[in-house]
Write a protein that binds this DNA or RNA. Structure first.
Length: 601
DNA sequence: GCCGTTTTCGGCCCGACTGTTTTCAGTCG
Protein backbone atom coordinates (compact mmCIF):
# COMPACT_ATOMS: atom_id res chain seq x y z
CA UNK A 1 0.00 0.00 0.00
CA UNK A 2 1.33 3.41 -0.98
CA UNK A 3 1.98 6.10 1.61
CA UNK A 4 -0.53 8.40 -0.02
CA UNK A 5 -3.23 5.76 0.32
CA UNK A 6 -2.62 5.35 4.04
CA UNK A 7 -2.41 9.12 4.39
CA UNK A 8 -5.74 9.54 2.62
CA UNK A 9 -7.49 7.20 5.05
CA UNK A 10 -5.94 8.96 8.04
CA UNK A 11 -6.81 12.40 6.66
CA UNK A 12 -10.40 11.40 6.01
CA UNK A 13 -10.62 10.04 9.53
CA UNK A 14 -9.30 13.37 10.84
CA UNK A 15 -11.86 15.32 8.82
CA UNK A 16 -14.70 13.09 9.93
CA UNK A 17 -13.60 13.38 13.55
CA UNK A 18 -13.53 17.15 13.22
CA UNK A 19 -17.03 17.21 11.77
CA UNK A 20 -18.06 14.87 14.57
CA UNK A 21 -16.88 17.46 17.08
CA UNK A 22 -13.82 15.67 18.42
CA UNK A 23 -11.39 17.76 20.45
CA UNK A 24 -8.72 19.53 18.45
CA UNK A 25 -5.81 17.38 19.57
CA UNK A 26 -7.40 14.10 18.60
CA UNK A 27 -8.02 14.90 14.96
CA UNK A 28 -4.80 16.89 14.70
CA UNK A 29 -2.88 13.75 15.63
CA UNK A 30 -4.39 11.94 12.63
CA UNK A 31 -3.72 14.90 10.38
CA UNK A 32 -0.12 15.14 11.52
CA UNK A 33 0.56 11.50 10.71
CA UNK A 34 -1.07 11.95 7.28
CA UNK A 35 1.25 14.90 6.65
CA UNK A 36 4.21 12.86 7.88
CA UNK A 37 3.48 10.13 5.35
CA UNK A 38 3.82 12.63 2.52
CA UNK A 39 7.13 13.96 3.81
CA UNK A 40 9.02 10.72 4.43
CA UNK A 41 10.48 8.77 1.54
CA UNK A 42 10.47 5.33 3.13
CA UNK A 43 7.40 3.26 2.35
CA UNK A 44 5.29 3.09 5.48
CA UNK A 45 4.54 -0.53 4.58
CA UNK A 46 8.23 -1.33 4.93
CA UNK A 47 8.70 0.73 8.10
CA UNK A 48 5.69 -0.95 9.73
CA UNK A 49 7.35 -4.36 9.47
CA UNK A 50 9.34 -3.30 12.51
CA UNK A 51 6.91 -1.94 15.15
CA UNK A 52 9.74 -0.28 17.03
CA UNK A 53 10.81 1.67 13.96
CA UNK A 54 7.23 2.69 13.28
CA UNK A 55 6.87 4.16 16.76
CA UNK A 56 10.13 6.08 16.37
CA UNK A 57 8.40 8.30 13.81
CA UNK A 58 7.26 11.59 15.38
CA UNK A 59 3.57 11.63 16.25
CA UNK A 60 3.16 7.86 16.16
CA UNK A 61 2.53 6.20 19.50
CA UNK A 62 1.14 2.80 20.47
CA UNK A 63 -2.38 3.51 19.29
CA UNK A 64 -1.47 5.19 16.02
CA UNK A 65 0.98 2.41 15.21
CA UNK A 66 -1.81 -0.12 15.67
CA UNK A 67 -4.15 1.95 13.47
CA UNK A 68 -1.55 2.11 10.71
CA UNK A 69 -1.00 -1.64 10.86
CA UNK A 70 -4.74 -2.14 10.66
CA UNK A 71 -4.92 0.05 7.56
CA UNK A 72 -2.02 -1.79 5.93
CA UNK A 73 -3.57 -5.17 6.68
CA UNK A 74 -7.22 -4.52 5.92
CA UNK A 75 -7.05 -1.57 3.54
CA UNK A 76 -9.37 0.43 5.79
CA UNK A 77 -9.67 1.68 9.32
CA UNK A 78 -12.52 0.75 11.65
CA UNK A 79 -12.97 4.22 13.13
CA UNK A 80 -13.24 5.72 9.66
CA UNK A 81 -15.77 3.08 8.63
CA UNK A 82 -17.75 3.74 11.80
CA UNK A 83 -17.79 7.48 11.20
CA UNK A 84 -18.86 6.88 7.61
CA UNK A 85 -21.99 5.18 8.91
CA UNK A 86 -22.83 8.49 10.56
CA UNK A 87 -21.62 10.88 7.82
CA UNK A 88 -21.48 10.21 4.06
CA UNK A 89 -18.08 10.49 2.41
CA UNK A 90 -19.30 13.24 0.06
CA UNK A 91 -19.59 15.50 3.09
CA UNK A 92 -15.82 15.94 2.85
CA UNK A 93 -16.24 17.64 -0.54
CA UNK A 94 -18.02 20.46 1.26
CA UNK A 95 -14.91 21.10 3.36
CA UNK A 96 -13.04 22.12 0.22
CA UNK A 97 -15.43 24.99 -0.36
CA UNK A 98 -14.29 28.46 0.62
CA UNK A 99 -16.02 29.62 3.82
CA UNK A 100 -17.11 26.10 4.71
CA UNK A 101 -15.45 24.43 7.66
CA UNK A 102 -16.26 21.43 9.82
CA UNK A 103 -18.69 23.27 12.12
CA UNK A 104 -20.86 24.59 9.33
CA UNK A 105 -20.73 21.31 7.43
CA UNK A 106 -21.81 19.43 10.56
CA UNK A 107 -24.63 21.89 11.26
CA UNK A 108 -25.96 21.75 7.70
CA UNK A 109 -25.90 18.00 7.72
CA UNK A 110 -27.63 17.83 11.08
CA UNK A 111 -30.37 20.28 10.10
CA UNK A 112 -30.93 19.50 6.43
CA UNK A 113 -28.96 16.31 5.63
CA UNK A 114 -27.04 18.33 3.02
CA UNK A 115 -24.05 16.24 1.96
CA UNK A 116 -23.17 17.20 -1.61
CA UNK A 117 -21.89 20.34 -3.29
CA UNK A 118 -24.92 20.33 -5.58
CA UNK A 119 -27.29 19.95 -2.64
CA UNK A 120 -25.68 22.82 -0.80
CA UNK A 121 -25.75 25.00 -3.89
CA UNK A 122 -29.49 24.37 -4.28
CA UNK A 123 -30.17 25.25 -0.63
CA UNK A 124 -28.24 28.49 -0.98
CA UNK A 125 -29.97 29.36 -4.22
CA UNK A 126 -33.38 28.76 -2.65
CA UNK A 127 -32.49 31.03 0.27
CA UNK A 128 -33.04 28.27 2.79
CA UNK A 129 -29.82 28.84 4.73
CA UNK A 130 -30.27 32.46 5.87
CA UNK A 131 -32.43 31.66 8.89
CA UNK A 132 -29.94 29.18 10.27
CA UNK A 133 -27.96 30.27 13.31
CA UNK A 134 -24.65 31.77 12.19
CA UNK A 135 -25.79 32.08 8.58
CA UNK A 136 -27.23 35.02 6.69
CA UNK A 137 -27.84 36.24 3.16
CA UNK A 138 -24.15 36.96 2.74
CA UNK A 139 -23.31 33.38 3.72
CA UNK A 140 -25.57 32.13 0.93
CA UNK A 141 -23.84 34.42 -1.54
CA UNK A 142 -20.43 33.16 -0.43
CA UNK A 143 -21.50 29.55 -0.76
CA UNK A 144 -22.72 30.17 -4.30
CA UNK A 145 -19.41 31.83 -5.14
CA UNK A 146 -17.49 28.93 -3.62
CA UNK A 147 -19.45 26.25 -5.49
CA UNK A 148 -18.88 28.18 -8.71
CA UNK A 149 -15.13 28.29 -8.06
CA UNK A 150 -15.08 24.59 -7.19
CA UNK A 151 -16.72 23.74 -10.50
CA UNK A 152 -14.31 25.85 -12.51
CA UNK A 153 -10.90 25.18 -10.99
CA UNK A 154 -9.18 21.98 -9.98
CA UNK A 155 -7.62 24.01 -7.20
CA UNK A 156 -3.94 23.68 -7.98
CA UNK A 157 -1.69 25.30 -10.55
CA UNK A 158 1.64 24.41 -12.08
CA UNK A 159 4.64 26.29 -10.76
CA UNK A 160 5.24 28.22 -13.99
CA UNK A 161 1.61 29.28 -14.27
CA UNK A 162 1.52 30.58 -10.69
CA UNK A 163 4.87 32.30 -11.15
CA UNK A 164 3.76 34.09 -14.31
CA UNK A 165 0.54 35.30 -12.70
CA UNK A 166 2.45 36.43 -9.62
CA UNK A 167 5.00 38.34 -11.69
CA UNK A 168 2.29 40.15 -13.64
CA UNK A 169 0.55 41.20 -10.43
CA UNK A 170 3.85 42.21 -8.80
CA UNK A 171 4.60 44.48 -11.75
CA UNK A 172 1.13 45.97 -11.48
CA UNK A 173 1.37 46.62 -7.73
CA UNK A 174 4.82 48.09 -8.36
CA UNK A 175 3.15 50.93 -10.24
CA UNK A 176 2.48 52.44 -6.80
CA UNK A 177 6.18 53.12 -6.46
CA UNK A 178 5.62 56.26 -4.35
CA UNK A 179 4.22 54.11 -1.52
CA UNK A 180 5.42 50.55 -2.11
CA UNK A 181 8.93 49.71 -0.97
CA UNK A 182 9.25 46.01 -1.81
CA UNK A 183 7.10 43.22 -3.25
CA UNK A 184 7.88 39.53 -3.25
CA UNK A 185 6.15 36.21 -3.54
CA UNK A 186 6.06 34.10 -0.37
CA UNK A 187 4.23 30.84 0.29
CA UNK A 188 4.68 27.66 -1.68
CA UNK A 189 5.70 29.67 -4.75
CA UNK A 190 8.78 30.96 -2.92
CA UNK A 191 9.49 27.46 -1.64
CA UNK A 192 9.31 26.20 -5.24
CA UNK A 193 6.68 23.55 -4.69
CA UNK A 194 5.76 21.63 -7.82
CA UNK A 195 2.16 22.81 -7.73
CA UNK A 196 0.71 25.88 -6.10
CA UNK A 197 -2.66 26.19 -4.39
CA UNK A 198 -2.65 29.94 -4.03
CA UNK A 199 -0.17 32.77 -4.34
CA UNK A 200 0.96 34.83 -1.34
CA UNK A 201 2.46 38.22 -1.98
CA UNK A 202 4.15 40.27 0.72
CA UNK A 203 4.19 44.01 0.07
CA UNK A 204 6.05 46.40 2.35
CA UNK A 205 5.50 50.13 2.37
CA UNK A 206 7.98 52.95 2.57
CA UNK A 207 8.59 54.09 6.18
CA UNK A 208 7.00 57.50 5.60
CA UNK A 209 4.08 56.05 3.66
CA UNK A 210 2.73 53.31 5.91
CA UNK A 211 -0.31 55.00 7.41
CA UNK A 212 -3.65 53.24 7.03
CA UNK A 213 -4.58 55.71 4.26
CA UNK A 214 -1.50 54.61 2.30
CA UNK A 215 -2.28 50.94 2.81
CA UNK A 216 -5.85 51.59 1.68
CA UNK A 217 -4.59 53.35 -1.42
CA UNK A 218 -2.48 50.36 -2.45
CA UNK A 219 -5.33 47.97 -1.63
CA UNK A 220 -7.72 49.98 -3.80
CA UNK A 221 -5.16 49.86 -6.60
CA UNK A 222 -4.92 46.07 -6.31
CA UNK A 223 -8.70 45.71 -6.40
CA UNK A 224 -8.69 47.48 -9.77
CA UNK A 225 -6.30 44.89 -11.26
CA UNK A 226 -7.75 43.95 -14.67
CA UNK A 227 -7.24 40.21 -14.13
CA UNK A 228 -9.53 39.97 -11.08
CA UNK A 229 -12.52 37.68 -11.18
CA UNK A 230 -13.71 38.26 -7.61
CA UNK A 231 -12.65 39.77 -4.30
CA UNK A 232 -12.68 37.37 -1.36
CA UNK A 233 -11.45 39.63 1.44
CA UNK A 234 -10.43 43.20 1.94
CA UNK A 235 -9.26 44.08 5.43
CA UNK A 236 -6.83 46.44 7.12
CA UNK A 237 -3.70 44.80 5.79
CA UNK A 238 -4.87 41.96 3.62
CA UNK A 239 -6.49 41.67 0.22
CA UNK A 240 -7.60 38.33 -1.21
CA UNK A 241 -8.62 38.03 -4.82
CA UNK A 242 -9.36 35.33 -7.35
CA UNK A 243 -7.96 35.75 -10.85
CA UNK A 244 -9.75 34.82 -14.04
CA UNK A 245 -8.12 31.37 -14.17
CA UNK A 246 -9.29 30.59 -10.62
CA UNK A 247 -5.94 31.23 -8.95
CA UNK A 248 -6.37 32.82 -5.53
CA UNK A 249 -3.90 35.53 -4.53
CA UNK A 250 -3.50 36.81 -0.98
CA UNK A 251 -1.66 40.10 -0.67
CA UNK A 252 -0.36 41.32 2.72
CA UNK A 253 0.46 44.98 3.10
CA UNK A 254 2.93 45.58 5.89
CA UNK A 255 5.43 47.99 7.38
CA UNK A 256 9.02 47.66 6.27
CA UNK A 257 10.29 46.89 9.77
CA UNK A 258 8.54 43.54 9.98
CA UNK A 259 9.53 42.26 6.51
CA UNK A 260 11.67 39.44 7.90
CA UNK A 261 9.04 38.12 10.27
CA UNK A 262 6.34 38.50 7.63
CA UNK A 263 8.36 36.72 4.95
CA UNK A 264 9.18 33.91 7.32
CA UNK A 265 5.56 33.56 8.38
CA UNK A 266 4.00 33.74 4.93
CA UNK A 267 6.64 31.59 3.24
CA UNK A 268 5.94 28.67 5.55
CA UNK A 269 5.68 25.83 5.35
CA UNK A 270 3.16 25.63 8.11
CA UNK A 271 5.05 22.69 9.57
CA UNK A 272 8.35 24.57 9.49
CA UNK A 273 6.75 27.56 11.19
CA UNK A 274 5.18 25.47 13.91
CA UNK A 275 8.59 24.11 14.86
CA UNK A 276 10.18 27.56 14.75
CA UNK A 277 7.47 28.91 17.03
CA UNK A 278 7.91 26.06 19.44
CA UNK A 279 11.63 26.74 19.46
CA UNK A 280 11.04 30.44 20.10
CA UNK A 281 8.76 29.55 22.99
CA UNK A 282 11.36 27.22 24.50
CA UNK A 283 13.78 30.16 24.43
CA UNK A 284 11.34 32.43 26.24
CA UNK A 285 10.15 34.25 23.14
CA UNK A 286 7.14 34.25 20.89
CA UNK A 287 7.18 34.43 17.10
CA UNK A 288 4.41 35.85 14.94
CA UNK A 289 4.21 37.54 11.56
CA UNK A 290 5.31 40.87 13.00
CA UNK A 291 8.36 40.00 15.07
CA UNK A 292 10.17 37.73 17.44
CA UNK A 293 9.44 39.20 20.88
CA UNK A 294 9.94 38.25 24.52
CA UNK A 295 7.15 36.16 25.95
CA UNK A 296 6.74 38.18 29.15
CA UNK A 297 7.18 41.82 28.21
CA UNK A 298 6.70 41.68 24.45
CA UNK A 299 10.05 43.36 23.89
CA UNK A 300 11.34 43.24 20.28
CA UNK A 301 14.06 40.63 19.71
CA UNK A 302 14.29 40.35 15.90
CA UNK A 303 12.13 40.75 12.80
CA UNK A 304 13.72 42.98 10.17
CA UNK A 305 15.21 40.09 8.23
CA UNK A 306 14.75 36.35 8.15
CA UNK A 307 18.47 36.02 8.81
CA UNK A 308 18.10 37.95 12.09
CA UNK A 309 15.33 35.68 13.30
CA UNK A 310 17.10 32.44 12.43
CA UNK A 311 20.25 33.77 14.11
CA UNK A 312 18.38 34.57 17.33
CA UNK A 313 16.88 31.08 17.27
CA UNK A 314 20.46 29.79 17.03
CA UNK A 315 19.89 28.41 13.56
CA UNK A 316 21.79 28.90 10.32
CA UNK A 317 19.75 30.61 7.61
CA UNK A 318 17.44 28.09 5.97
CA UNK A 319 16.70 28.54 2.26
CA UNK A 320 12.95 28.66 1.45
CA UNK A 321 13.08 25.45 -0.59
CA UNK A 322 14.14 23.50 2.51
CA UNK A 323 11.43 24.78 4.84
CA UNK A 324 9.29 21.67 5.02
CA UNK A 325 10.24 20.34 8.46
CA UNK A 326 12.03 17.36 6.97
CA UNK A 327 15.25 17.71 8.91
CA UNK A 328 16.30 21.23 7.91
CA UNK A 329 15.93 22.64 11.42
CA UNK A 330 18.20 20.00 12.94
CA UNK A 331 20.69 20.60 10.12
CA UNK A 332 20.57 24.36 10.71
CA UNK A 333 21.25 23.75 14.38
CA UNK A 334 24.23 21.50 13.63
CA UNK A 335 25.56 23.70 10.81
CA UNK A 336 25.13 20.85 8.35
CA UNK A 337 22.74 22.47 5.88
CA UNK A 338 23.66 21.81 2.25
CA UNK A 339 25.13 24.59 0.10
CA UNK A 340 22.30 24.37 -2.42
CA UNK A 341 22.77 24.16 -6.17
CA UNK A 342 22.34 27.44 -8.09
CA UNK A 343 21.05 28.02 -11.62
CA UNK A 344 24.42 29.49 -12.65
CA UNK A 345 26.13 26.21 -11.68
CA UNK A 346 24.50 24.48 -14.65
CA UNK A 347 26.87 24.16 -17.61
CA UNK A 348 24.91 22.04 -20.07
CA UNK A 349 21.52 20.60 -20.98
CA UNK A 350 21.22 16.90 -21.64
CA UNK A 351 17.82 16.33 -23.12
CA UNK A 352 16.23 18.20 -26.04
CA UNK A 353 14.50 17.64 -29.33
CA UNK A 354 14.97 19.04 -32.83
CA UNK A 355 12.97 18.94 -36.04
CA UNK A 356 14.33 15.42 -36.51
CA UNK A 357 11.57 14.22 -34.21
CA UNK A 358 9.07 16.50 -32.46
CA UNK A 359 11.13 19.63 -31.74
CA UNK A 360 10.57 22.98 -33.40
CA UNK A 361 14.18 24.07 -34.03
CA UNK A 362 17.16 22.75 -35.97
CA UNK A 363 20.34 21.39 -34.41
CA UNK A 364 22.11 24.65 -35.19
CA UNK A 365 19.35 26.79 -33.67
CA UNK A 366 19.37 24.77 -30.47
CA UNK A 367 23.16 24.94 -30.29
CA UNK A 368 23.26 28.67 -30.79
CA UNK A 369 20.49 29.33 -28.25
CA UNK A 370 22.29 27.18 -25.67
CA UNK A 371 25.57 28.97 -26.32
CA UNK A 372 23.80 32.29 -25.78
CA UNK A 373 22.91 31.03 -22.30
CA UNK A 374 26.58 30.39 -21.64
CA UNK A 375 26.34 26.60 -21.73
CA UNK A 376 29.47 24.62 -22.55
CA UNK A 377 27.69 21.58 -23.98
CA UNK A 378 24.30 20.15 -24.89
CA UNK A 379 23.06 16.74 -25.96
CA UNK A 380 20.62 16.57 -28.87
CA UNK A 381 18.35 13.69 -27.96
CA UNK A 382 15.53 13.13 -30.41
CA UNK A 383 13.00 10.35 -29.91
CA UNK A 384 13.44 6.78 -31.11
CA UNK A 385 10.96 5.03 -33.40
CA UNK A 386 8.60 3.63 -30.75
CA UNK A 387 7.27 7.14 -30.23
CA UNK A 388 5.63 7.25 -33.63
CA UNK A 389 3.48 10.27 -32.83
CA UNK A 390 6.70 12.23 -32.27
CA UNK A 391 8.28 11.03 -35.53
CA UNK A 392 10.79 8.91 -33.62
CA UNK A 393 13.95 7.78 -35.45
CA UNK A 394 14.91 4.22 -36.37
CA UNK A 395 18.54 3.07 -36.36
CA UNK A 396 19.22 4.41 -39.84
CA UNK A 397 17.81 7.84 -39.14
CA UNK A 398 19.55 7.96 -35.77
CA UNK A 399 22.90 7.47 -37.46
CA UNK A 400 22.00 10.07 -40.09
CA UNK A 401 21.14 12.46 -37.26
CA UNK A 402 24.51 11.67 -35.65
CA UNK A 403 26.24 12.69 -38.88
CA UNK A 404 24.14 15.86 -39.05
CA UNK A 405 25.12 16.78 -35.51
CA UNK A 406 28.81 16.25 -36.30
CA UNK A 407 28.35 18.42 -39.37
CA UNK A 408 26.45 21.11 -37.44
CA UNK A 409 29.27 21.21 -34.90
CA UNK A 410 31.59 22.68 -37.55
CA UNK A 411 29.15 25.57 -37.98
CA UNK A 412 28.37 26.12 -34.29
CA UNK A 413 31.65 26.80 -32.51
CA UNK A 414 32.03 27.59 -28.84
CA UNK A 415 29.75 24.89 -27.53
CA UNK A 416 30.07 21.14 -27.61
CA UNK A 417 27.18 19.39 -29.40
CA UNK A 418 26.80 15.84 -28.12
CA UNK A 419 25.03 13.43 -30.42
CA UNK A 420 22.42 11.78 -28.25
CA UNK A 421 19.14 9.91 -28.28
CA UNK A 422 16.11 9.62 -26.06
CA UNK A 423 15.66 5.94 -26.67
CA UNK A 424 12.45 4.25 -25.60
CA UNK A 425 12.46 1.52 -23.00
CA UNK A 426 10.15 -1.09 -24.50
CA UNK A 427 7.62 -3.10 -22.54
CA UNK A 428 10.12 -5.90 -21.90
CA UNK A 429 12.85 -3.51 -20.75
CA UNK A 430 14.82 -3.71 -23.99
CA UNK A 431 15.90 -0.66 -25.95
CA UNK A 432 14.07 0.55 -29.04
CA UNK A 433 17.37 0.79 -30.99
CA UNK A 434 20.24 -1.62 -31.60
CA UNK A 435 23.21 -1.64 -29.22
CA UNK A 436 25.52 -0.94 -32.19
CA UNK A 437 23.63 2.29 -32.83
CA UNK A 438 23.62 3.36 -29.18
CA UNK A 439 27.33 2.63 -28.94
CA UNK A 440 28.12 5.26 -31.55
CA UNK A 441 26.33 8.07 -29.78
CA UNK A 442 27.86 10.40 -27.18
CA UNK A 443 24.95 10.39 -24.73
CA UNK A 444 22.21 7.77 -24.36
CA UNK A 445 19.12 8.86 -22.48
CA UNK A 446 16.46 6.18 -21.94
CA UNK A 447 12.83 6.74 -21.05
CA UNK A 448 9.39 5.19 -20.99
CA UNK A 449 6.49 6.43 -23.13
CA UNK A 450 4.29 3.35 -23.34
CA UNK A 451 2.64 0.70 -21.18
CA UNK A 452 2.58 3.04 -18.21
CA UNK A 453 -0.07 1.09 -16.30
CA UNK A 454 2.09 -1.96 -15.58
CA UNK A 455 1.94 -3.32 -12.08
CA UNK A 456 4.56 -2.44 -9.53
CA UNK A 457 6.75 -5.52 -9.89
CA UNK A 458 6.69 -5.61 -13.67
CA UNK A 459 7.53 -1.92 -13.92
CA UNK A 460 10.40 -2.34 -11.44
CA UNK A 461 11.80 -5.21 -13.54
CA UNK A 462 11.39 -3.22 -16.74
CA UNK A 463 13.36 -0.23 -15.46
CA UNK A 464 15.97 -2.46 -13.84
CA UNK A 465 16.51 -4.08 -17.24
CA UNK A 466 16.99 -0.65 -18.79
CA UNK A 467 19.56 0.31 -16.17
CA UNK A 468 21.39 -2.96 -16.67
CA UNK A 469 21.72 -2.28 -20.40
CA UNK A 470 25.38 -1.22 -20.68
CA UNK A 471 24.63 1.55 -23.19
CA UNK A 472 22.13 3.44 -21.05
CA UNK A 473 23.63 6.41 -19.24
CA UNK A 474 20.69 8.50 -18.11
CA UNK A 475 17.11 7.58 -17.19
CA UNK A 476 14.87 10.46 -18.26
CA UNK A 477 11.68 11.56 -16.48
CA UNK A 478 11.92 8.38 -14.47
CA UNK A 479 8.39 8.29 -13.04
CA UNK A 480 6.53 9.53 -16.11
CA UNK A 481 4.15 11.74 -14.22
CA UNK A 482 2.46 14.79 -15.71
CA UNK A 483 1.54 17.21 -12.98
CA UNK A 484 -2.22 17.62 -12.47
CA UNK A 485 -2.80 15.22 -15.35
CA UNK A 486 -1.16 11.84 -14.91
CA UNK A 487 0.06 9.87 -11.92
CA UNK A 488 3.62 8.53 -11.66
CA UNK A 489 4.42 4.94 -12.64
CA UNK A 490 4.41 2.61 -9.70
CA UNK A 491 7.66 0.86 -8.97
CA UNK A 492 10.20 0.30 -6.22
CA UNK A 493 12.24 3.47 -6.28
CA UNK A 494 14.75 2.16 -3.72
CA UNK A 495 15.64 -0.82 -5.92
CA UNK A 496 15.90 1.36 -9.02
CA UNK A 497 18.19 3.86 -7.33
CA UNK A 498 20.38 1.16 -5.84
CA UNK A 499 20.77 -0.28 -9.34
CA UNK A 500 21.50 3.17 -10.79
CA UNK A 501 24.22 3.62 -8.19
CA UNK A 502 25.68 0.19 -8.93
CA UNK A 503 25.82 0.74 -12.70
CA UNK A 504 26.76 4.41 -12.68
CA UNK A 505 23.53 5.47 -14.39
CA UNK A 506 22.43 9.05 -13.79
CA UNK A 507 18.82 9.89 -12.94
CA UNK A 508 17.27 12.88 -14.63
CA UNK A 509 15.43 15.68 -12.97
CA UNK A 510 13.27 16.81 -15.87
CA UNK A 511 12.95 20.57 -15.49
CA UNK A 512 9.85 20.92 -17.61
CA UNK A 513 7.23 22.36 -15.23
CA UNK A 514 4.67 19.76 -16.28
CA UNK A 515 7.00 17.01 -15.15
CA UNK A 516 9.56 17.97 -12.47
CA UNK A 517 10.55 14.35 -12.53
CA UNK A 518 12.32 13.03 -10.47
CA UNK A 519 10.62 15.04 -7.78
CA UNK A 520 12.18 16.58 -4.70
CA UNK A 521 12.03 13.66 -2.28
CA UNK A 522 13.30 11.22 -4.90
CA UNK A 523 16.23 13.53 -5.64
CA UNK A 524 17.03 13.55 -1.95
CA UNK A 525 17.04 9.75 -2.05
CA UNK A 526 19.55 9.98 -4.93
CA UNK A 527 21.76 12.24 -2.85
CA UNK A 528 21.63 9.92 0.14
CA UNK A 529 22.65 6.97 -2.05
CA UNK A 530 25.26 8.81 -4.10
CA UNK A 531 23.27 8.38 -7.32
CA UNK A 532 24.33 10.88 -10.00
CA UNK A 533 21.72 13.41 -11.10
CA UNK A 534 21.40 15.44 -14.30
CA UNK A 535 18.95 18.28 -14.71
CA UNK A 536 17.60 18.66 -18.25
CA UNK A 537 14.86 20.73 -19.80
CA UNK A 538 13.51 18.25 -22.37
CA UNK A 539 13.31 21.36 -24.58
CA UNK A 540 11.16 20.98 -27.68
CA UNK A 541 12.06 24.52 -28.72
CA UNK A 542 14.99 26.81 -28.00
CA UNK A 543 12.65 28.93 -25.87
CA UNK A 544 12.27 26.00 -23.47
CA UNK A 545 15.84 26.23 -22.18
CA UNK A 546 14.60 28.79 -19.68
CA UNK A 547 12.67 26.04 -17.85
CA UNK A 548 15.99 24.96 -16.32
CA UNK A 549 15.23 27.11 -13.29
CA UNK A 550 12.29 24.88 -12.32
CA UNK A 551 14.56 21.85 -12.37
CA UNK A 552 17.11 23.65 -10.24
CA UNK A 553 14.51 24.74 -7.70
CA UNK A 554 13.21 21.16 -7.52
CA UNK A 555 16.76 19.90 -7.02
CA UNK A 556 17.21 22.47 -4.25
CA UNK A 557 14.08 21.11 -2.61
CA UNK A 558 15.82 17.73 -2.80
CA UNK A 559 18.78 19.20 -0.86
CA UNK A 560 21.08 18.83 -3.89
CA UNK A 561 24.40 20.64 -4.04
CA UNK A 562 26.56 21.44 -7.04
CA UNK A 563 28.58 18.29 -6.48
CA UNK A 564 25.46 16.10 -6.69
CA UNK A 565 24.56 17.19 -10.24
CA UNK A 566 26.88 16.12 -13.07
CA UNK A 567 25.87 18.77 -15.60
CA UNK A 568 27.55 21.30 -13.34
CA UNK A 569 30.85 19.80 -14.47
CA UNK A 570 33.00 21.09 -17.32
CA UNK A 571 32.83 19.19 -20.61
CA UNK A 572 35.66 16.72 -20.01
CA UNK A 573 34.67 16.05 -16.40
CA UNK A 574 31.05 15.60 -17.42
CA UNK A 575 31.95 13.00 -20.03
CA UNK A 576 34.09 11.23 -17.48
CA UNK A 577 31.19 11.21 -15.01
CA UNK A 578 28.84 9.51 -17.48
CA UNK A 579 28.68 5.74 -17.37
CA UNK A 580 31.48 4.34 -19.58
CA UNK A 581 30.09 2.15 -22.34
CA UNK A 582 31.62 -0.85 -24.10
CA UNK A 583 33.33 0.08 -27.35
CA UNK A 584 32.09 3.66 -27.37
CA UNK A 585 34.20 6.11 -29.31
CA UNK A 586 34.79 9.45 -27.69
CA UNK A 587 33.12 12.44 -29.27
CA UNK A 588 35.19 14.86 -31.33
CA UNK A 589 35.92 18.14 -29.64
CA UNK A 590 34.19 21.35 -30.61
CA UNK A 591 36.10 23.87 -32.68
CA UNK A 592 37.05 26.88 -30.54
CA UNK A 593 35.24 30.20 -30.86
CA UNK A 594 36.89 33.01 -32.76
CA UNK A 595 37.57 34.76 -29.48
CA UNK A 596 39.24 31.69 -28.06
CA UNK A 597 41.33 31.28 -31.21
CA UNK A 598 42.54 34.85 -30.90
CA UNK A 599 43.35 34.33 -27.24
CA UNK A 600 45.45 31.21 -27.87
CA UNK A 601 47.21 32.93 -30.76
C1' DG B 1 -3.95 10.64 20.04
C1' DC B 2 0.75 12.40 21.18
C1' DC B 3 3.96 14.53 24.02
C1' DG B 4 6.98 15.91 27.95
C1' DT B 5 11.96 16.15 32.61
C1' DT B 6 10.09 22.90 35.29
C1' DT B 7 4.16 19.25 33.01
C1' DT B 8 1.89 11.97 33.28
C1' DC B 9 -2.52 16.18 32.61
C1' DG B 10 -3.34 19.72 29.75
C1' DG B 11 -1.96 21.61 25.85
C1' DC B 12 -2.09 20.93 20.86
C1' DC B 13 0.35 28.08 16.29
C1' DC B 14 -1.85 32.11 16.31
C1' DG B 15 -3.55 36.31 14.41
C1' DA B 16 -6.66 38.37 10.67
C1' DC B 17 -10.90 38.62 8.56
C1' DT B 18 -15.86 37.87 7.88
C1' DG B 19 -20.44 37.70 9.01
C1' DT B 20 -23.29 37.45 12.29
C1' DT B 21 -23.62 39.22 16.18
C1' DT B 22 -23.94 43.15 19.83
C1' DT B 23 -18.94 40.32 21.85
C1' DC B 24 -17.88 36.25 19.18
C1' DA B 25 -17.62 31.82 16.51
C1' DG B 26 -15.97 29.98 12.46
C1' DT B 27 -12.72 29.92 8.81
C1' DC B 28 -8.28 30.62 6.83
C1' DG B 29 -3.46 30.35 6.05
Amino acid sequence: MENREVARILRETAQLLEIDGAIIGRYRSYEKVAELLFSIHERIEDVAKDPKKLKELPGIGDNMAAHICEILETGDYALRAKLLKKYPLTLLDLLNLQSMGPKKVALLYKKFKVCTVEGLEQMARDGKLRDLEGFGEKSEENILKATAVAKRASGRFKLDVAENEANKLIAYIGQKSDIVDFITAAGSLRRGKETIGDVDLVVTLKPKRSKQADIDEVAEHILKYPGIDQTLAHGENKVSIVLGNGLQVDVRLLEKDCLGAALLYFTGSKEHNVVLRGRARDMGWTLNEYALTTLKSGRFVAGKTEHDIYAKLQLDYIEPELRENTGEIEAAENHTLPALLKLEDIRGDLQMHTTASDGRNSIEEMGEAARELGYEYIALTDHSKAVTVANGMDDKRTLQQLAKIRDAQTRVPGIRLFAGIEVDVLKNGQMDLADETLGQLDVVVASIHSFMQMDRNEMTERILAAIENPYVQIIAHPTGRLLLRREAFEYEMEKILDAAKKHGVAMECNAYPDRLDLKDIHLRMCKERGVKVVISTDAHSSTHFKMMKYGVITARRGWLEKKDVINTLGTAEFLAALRPRPGAVSAPTAPPTKAAKKKSA
